[in-house]
Design a protein around this nucleic acid. Structure first.
Lengths: 237, 237
DNA sequence: GGAGAAATTAACCCGTTGGATAAATACTGT
DNA sequence: ACAGTATTTATCCAACGGGTTAATTTCTCC
């Protein structure tokens, strides 16, 4: 807007910050869609509406670009995690909310799953070199530790589980279902991503974890409690 | 051994079946170590002790090779699965055995995890084209269905869960832990693959699933049952 | 209003890689 | 023993892909 006088149509405009963002966004899509080796630098440039040289100018070579994307992805989820305050909720409710958040986040950010898969296939080679990520400890572990302690003290939970194990299990139930939905859908011959299937999955996961913690499946599942419960509800859970 | 008379040292011998096996084994290693795009046809040939031309002669191009490896991997696990007979065990024992088998199989066959990850990153593009795999429906689902039904009828299980959900959850708990151990180890700053960690993980998984099904955490966990259980055992589970 | 720095474009370089072609060697049946 | 086929080796190549070099254009500050 500086020289408002229609001097002449510019061939291009400067926008370093915007360019960097577009590059990182394009790279995120490309890396998550094709993995590290499968990603094409030229496609990233094209998707970012830029010249290939810009990647190297603003970020660095392919590997640095990839690491930047990965760090950005971790940064994003960590920041959303901080927004959750499980402290106020009563323990079972807190765990339920945590499960729902995890599930929802993975659903809303499929690239995050792909990036993690890619990085794990590389045995975390890049992540190990990252100083940033190591300093972004998940606040969840401590959050969960307190929730579990409170739950045990209040009698809601029957068992004091290791918060790291619980965190991993909660992530696992959502992560695997979604990241492997493609092959699983083929194997089972049913679409695991349609609305109904997703609802059932969430119910199943909450039920499973909370039943284990509270020992009261009844609260959350359709239960079959009668001594000889011939007609157990065979749904969901 | 045919012409035993030391006629002359041969430059090479024919061995089509052996060659094919060596190629597939080498390809399995290469694809699981580097993914589809990252795999190098020349390395596969070298690892198989063969000429690159052999791959195309015996199997086909890179994609066909990859699919052959993938089908082989599924074939292997399915065949081991058939060996498990959960029918005879009482329901909780059967589930426990299933969890241990899954965990053990993934531990013994890390390439299987990598191949699945790779294929899922490709959104099962290749698997969908495979006629073989689709016909290998996992017998597990039916197995599990019966186990669950028996468990509900005997009163061991409080809830009749969907066998597909249960199967996926059991796989998820092991799969995610192992396939993502690299990044998780970095994040949590502890080695998830050392002996102790693995033992704890298995105990946690069995405990979680069985507690949810039976509603009796007591049977499997170190439990905190007292009304105000201040000193809950904080281990494992 | 123009000089110098910052940002962007355009063109090229060169090792790699999947795949193909052609020639050589080992078998098999007759 | 030898003709014909199956299997394996030895080269080659065109396209691709990451990265670089050099020239162009825009912006900023004095």
């Amino acid at each position: 807007m500086a020289k408002a006088t229609a001097k002449r149509t510019l061939k291009w405009q400067r926008d370093p910050e915007g360019m960097r963002l577009r590059i990182l966004e394009a790279a995120k899509q490309e890396f998550s869609a094709h993995g590290l080796a499968g990603a094409r630098v030229d496609r990233i440039a094209a998707k970012a509406g830029a010249n290939k040289r810009m990647l190297y100018y603003h970020v660095g070579n392919k590997d640095e670009l990839y690491l930047a994307v990965l760090e950005g992805a971790y940064d994003k989820i960590r920041s959303e995690e901080r927004g959750l305050d499980l402290e106020h909720l009563d323990p079972p409710e807190a765990i339920k909310r945590l499960i729902e958040f995890t599930w929802g986040y993975f659903l809303r950010n499929p690239e995050f799953l792909s990036l993690l898969q890619t990085e794990n296939l590389a045995r975390a080679k890049h992540l190990k070199r990252s100083t940033k990520v190591k300093s972004m400890h998940s606040p969840f572990v401590e959050m969960i530790r307190t929730v579990v302690r409170r739950g045990v003290e209040s009698g809601d939970f029957q068992v004091a589980v290791d918060p790291v194990q619980l965190y991993i299990s909660i992530a696992a139930l959502s992560f695997f279902y979604l990241s492997n939905s493609a092959t699983l859908s083929v194997i089972f011959g049913r679409d695991l991503l349609d609305k109904k299937a997703k609802d059932e999955r969430l119910a199943h996961m909450s039920g499973l974890v909370l039943a284990a913690l509270t020992g009261r499946s009844a609260a959350l599942f359709e239960v079959a409690k009668a001594p000889k419960p011939r007609s157990a509800v065979a749904q969901t859970v």
